[in-house]
Amino acid sequence: MQGLLTASLVVLSLAILGCMYRLLKGPSMADRIVSLDTIGIILLSMIAVFSMLFKTTAYLDIILVIGVITFIGTAALARFIERGDVIERGDHNGGR
């Protein structure tokens, strides 16, 4: 059990390394957003594995928080590269 969990931590770290490559290299902005999203999701599963290793339920809140923040961040970034503005104001002609 311990060995398997440690092995999966190593595998997940390698996955984050692959995402980092795409994050640094990615030719377009959308590539970087995809890899950031994937890094967030992999981080979430790493924390699940950690809390299993330490036999504690204290980290389970962090899973939810990271999930929410990753999704909000992806949505906001995608909107930003699409329109040039995250929050549109009515009176001000932001973006275009």
Partner: peptide, 29 residues
Amino acid sequence: IGVLVLTGASLSALGAFGLVRLPDVYLRS
């Protein structure tokens, strides 16, 4: 349970590998 977790980790790693390997944004997505 350990095997289940390791399978999930390997699938995540495969996804990241695809992120490195595939040629354009849509396929990576």
